[in-house]
Write a protein that binds this DNA or RNA. Sequence first.
DNA 1: ATGAAAGCGCTAACAA
DNA 2: TTGTTAGCGCTTTCAT
Lengths: 329, 329
Amino acid sequence: MSTPTARPATLEDVARLAGVSRSTASRVIAGTGFASPAARHRVTAAAEHLGYVPNAAARALVRGAGVRLVIAVAGADAGVLDDPYVDRVVAAAARVCAPHAVGVALEWLSLTEPAGLRRLGEDRSVCGVVLVNTTETVLDAVPATLRGRVASIGIGSATVPSFDVDNGGGADAVLRHLYASGRRRIAMITGPRWLSCAERSVAAYRAVTAAAGLPVRLVAGDFTAAHGRRAALEALTRWPDTDAIFAISDAPALGAIAALGGRGIRVPHDVAVAGFDDIPYAAISTPALTTATHPVARIAAAAASAVLDNQRVPPVTAFPSTLVRRESA
Amino acid sequence: MSTPTARPATLEDVARLAGVSRSTASRVIAGTGFASPAARHRVTAAAEHLGYVPNAAARALVRGAGVRLVIAVAGADAGVLDDPYVDRVVAAAARVCAPHAVGVALEWLSLTEPAGLRRLGEDRSVCGVVLVNTTETVLDAVPATLRGRVASIGIGSATVPSFDVDNGGGADAVLRHLYASGRRRIAMITGPRWLSCAERSVAAYRAVTAAAGLPVRLVAGDFTAAHGRRAALEALTRWPDTDAIFAISDAPALGAIAALGGRGIRVPHDVAVAGFDDIPYAAISTPALTTATHPVARIAAAAASAVLDNQRVPPVTAFPSTLVRRESA
DNA sequence: ATGAAAGCGCTAACAA
DNA sequence: TTGTTAGCGCTTTCAT
């Protein structure tokens, strides 16, 4: 299938071997424009024979297209990149990008200094940007140069389409389950204050408790297990009769279970614990964690695809979250 | 800091504003070649003013450099990409690549048909390849065109430098700990047969058991928790007096703990369980998992850097693995 | 249906 | 030290 050569074949080589002009070869390879079946066939054969692979950089240059998709994660410091969630987003995006011959880069976006976005907009080698952990401030800083090739995993704006799990629906499903199984004093471990998408879950919590006339028991936290530990203990200290804990995500929920176990409190017998995300470990923890699904890879793939294909997308794409009943609640 | 323009500034724009030629501007921006302090200053100022960002695609084209680093994961099917481990590698690489304006792509490499590597070698837009889960067959298929810009996370070869955790050392540390705490009938849950890097751990197991005159109890498995469950049960069935289980990685170890718990077997009282990798959940499981560290992000970053910088590297770079004593063993 | 020619934005000889 | 020139590999009018 190949003739070993020192340097990789170029379109010129293909055209010469096929006995056509570079333009014709280009039309055939790129699949754009006319070409006679004969020419088409000879070019294809030549390309195959030479093991020709189009140079994405050259292509991008002439088309003004860009070769990189940047995953920009907003946060207080670069530490936000150290998160399995971010890893999943990047890998899913990289998978979608591979067939397009575009690569993925991962960058931290300062919350206070979102001028980094300006630079991304000016960078012609960037074909698009996927925002993660977005805030309104960040969305406002999205330059016009990025319009049409930016998406957000989390909240969106008038110009930035949003791709996210249905946080409200998932939280609602979990909370209703807690209620249905007899829990009446449900505490919630929330996420960081600055993250808007976390508010959806809290809103669902407020709605459910209000509708059922239950007390509101909110404890601040973040997405770490360590915080879950502390928050669970705090909740139990403030409201000793708490019979269920709902955490904004699985890591703090697992932290809560650990903390409860350390206190000799049985889960779910004494206190039910539920999370959100359905991370792999949720299925094998002891007790196995009741939670709601969060299709991170699908969401990230959709966001990346939208940016790559430059397709018009609805302002908000919500991915359903379903309850996963296990042992902890 | 900027003059909002319809289209991003080019080097030409910078040169014009600075009143110098494009070449001079290029020298200053790229930091290569001579330039008078005066010229240097004016070019820098102009670039700053225009918010100029070099076009990586154009740069790569003229330098013949490439714009993408490909993470190629070998495996029986594309399912090998669905692994948190791969996610971590990709994200770490993407982080290292970002400042170089190169992106990362994720591809599956068929074990039986490693011709995909040929294509990567022919692709001028690929600046390098990082192999994951490599086998000797795959290494043999690495084309000469890739030489000097390929690295392997796992085993290496004469032409492909290896970056990996010290599997043998880590396994040895865990096994010695098991022995030191009185365990004498230690079973091991191994990894997939075809993966060479997994053999190091098995070798360490054989060495320790042989040296101490302990029985050899090997159960086949893979890197999943589900397999860990099955394998633990199998071990206990075949050798009911087993007092410790060492798993090739944390996921099966956690699966083993779950399976044991389901049988009413206490960990670590009846059976100690230890893993390898120190994944985040290891610290929050109940009981918390004793394991050995596996600095995946550092390894991936080193491999990516080696490829990017095209630096000469030693054939093997081993990253130390240290014991993490927790509750399970 | 095909080819000639121009040019994407940049770097790197080579001259001056 | 600086500018001129010639491409890197590809797509895309515009003629033919």
